[in-house]
C-alpha cells in the first residue's frame, strides 16, 4: 500500500502554485490536507507525476467577514473552522456539519476546500455548501471565476474545476436563520449514508420566509429539495407543514446503495431524517414548539 513515485513541489505563493498546475496539466494534482488524496495515492487510484503541495501557501488559509459574507480560504483546516466563533455565530449549519466530518486527527489536516474539491458524494460539506447558497472562487492562469455551489458540483468526485485551476475561496452569505445538520452513518465520523442540511427563517408572524433543504450521501451530487422548500414558505413550520415538506423530497434522486445501506433503506430513512432536521431548524429559528 505505497504510492507510485511522484515529484513534489511546495510553492509559497498562489501564483507559483497555479503556474505549476498550469504547466503540468492533468499530470499534476494539488495536495491540500491529504485526507482523501493520500489514500487514493496509497491505493494507486490516482497516479499523478507531480504533487503541488498547497500547505505552504499562507494566503489560502483564513476566515474573515467581508460585508455580509463569510469568506473561508480553501486551505482552512476543518478543525480551525469547527472552532471558529465566527462560523458558529454566522453560519451555524457549517459548524454543525463539521462536527460530523471525520475525527480530530483528520480534521487537524483536512481542509474545507479539499473536501469540496474532492466532491465525495458521501461527504458532508458539499451538501452544506449547497444549502448555504455559497459561492466558490476558482483561480486559473487567466484569472478568477465565481460559481454558485450548485454549478460547482458536476458528478460523483467531479467538479467544474479544470486542470490548472484551483478552488481558492468559499463565500457564504450571512443570513439570520435557524439550521440543523443531521446524518446517519455507521459510526460517528464515518461518511454519511444519508445526511440532511436544513435551514429555516421565520417572519414576525412565525411563518417561513425562507427554507432550504439539501440531501447528501444519496446521489452523485447534493440533492436540493426545491418542492419541499416551496411547501414550507408562507406556512408555520408545524408538524403538518414539515410532513408535507418531507413527502415532497425527490425520492427518485435517492439513487445510491451500498452493501451496508441499500437504496431502499436510504429511501426510507431520508424522509424521517428530513422531518427531524426541519423540526430542529424551525426550533433554532425560534418557532413556537
Amino acid at each position: 500500500m505505497k504510492p507510485a513515485p511522484f515529484d513534489y513541489a511546495a510553492p509559497r505563493t498562489l501564483d507559483e502554485a497555479i503556474d505549476l498546475l498550469g504547466r503540468h496539466g492533468e499530470d499534476a494534482r494539488p495536495l491540500a490536507g491529504g485526507q482523501s488524496l493520500m489514500p487514493m495515492l496509497a491505493l494507486r487510484l490516482s497516479r499523478p507525476s507531480l504533487l503541488v503541495d498547497l500547505n505552504r501557501v499562507e494566503s489560502l488559509s483564513g476566515i474573515r467577514i467581508d460585508d455580509d459574507e463569510l469568506r473561508i480560504g480553501a486551505m482552512t483546516r476543518q478543525a480551525e473552522a469547527l472552532e471558529s466563533a465566527e462560523i458558529r455565530r454566522h453560519v451555524p449549519l457549517l459548524a454543525q456539519a463539521l462536527a460530523e466530518v471525520g475525527h480530530p486527527p483528520t480534521r487537524a489536516r483536512g481542509t474545507i476546500g479539499g473536501s469540496l474539491a474532492h466532491a465525495d458524494p458521501a461527504a458532508e460539506l458539499p451538501a452544506v455548501i449547497v444549502a448555504l447558497g455559497a459561492k466558490l472562487v476558482i483561480r486559473g492562469a487567466t484569472g478568477e471565476r465565481v460559481l454558485r455551489a450548485e454549478e460547482f458540483f458536476r458528478g460523483m468526485f467531479e467538479t467544474d474545476v479544470k486542470a490548472g485551476e484551483l478552488l481558492v475561496e468559499i463565500r457564504i452569505p450571512i443570513q439570520a436563520q435557524g439550521s440543523a445538520f443531521l446524518e446517519i452513518a455507521l459510526r460517528k465520523g464515518d461518511f454519511a449514508i444519508v445526511s440532511v442540511a436544513a435551514s429555516i427563517a421565520l417572519g414576525p408572524d412565525q411563518r417561513c420566509v425562507a427554507a432550504t433543504l439539501v440531501l447528501g450521501g444519496v446521489g452523485p451530487m447534493p440533492v436540493r429539495c426545491a418542492d419541499s422548500e416551496r411547501r414550507l414558505i408562507g406556512h408555520t413550520p408545524d408538524a403538518a407543514a414539515i410532513s408535507a415538506a418531507a413527502e415532497a423530497i425527490p425520492i427518485d434522486r435517492v439513487e445510491l446503495g451500498s452493501r451496508s445501506a441499500s437504496r431502499g433503506y436510504r429511501r426510507r430513512v431520508a424522509p424521517v431524517l428530513v422531518k427531524r432536521a426541519l423540526a430542529a431548524a424551525a426550533g433554532a429559528a425560534g418557532a413556537a414548539p
Binding site: Y8, Q35, M38, A42, D53, A79, P105, A108, R109
Partner: peptide
C-alpha cells in the same frame, strides 16, 4: 496535534 502518520508525506 494528533495526525495520521500515513497521510502525511
Amino acid at each position: 496535534e494528533p495526525v495520521r502518520g500515513c497521510l502525511l508525506l
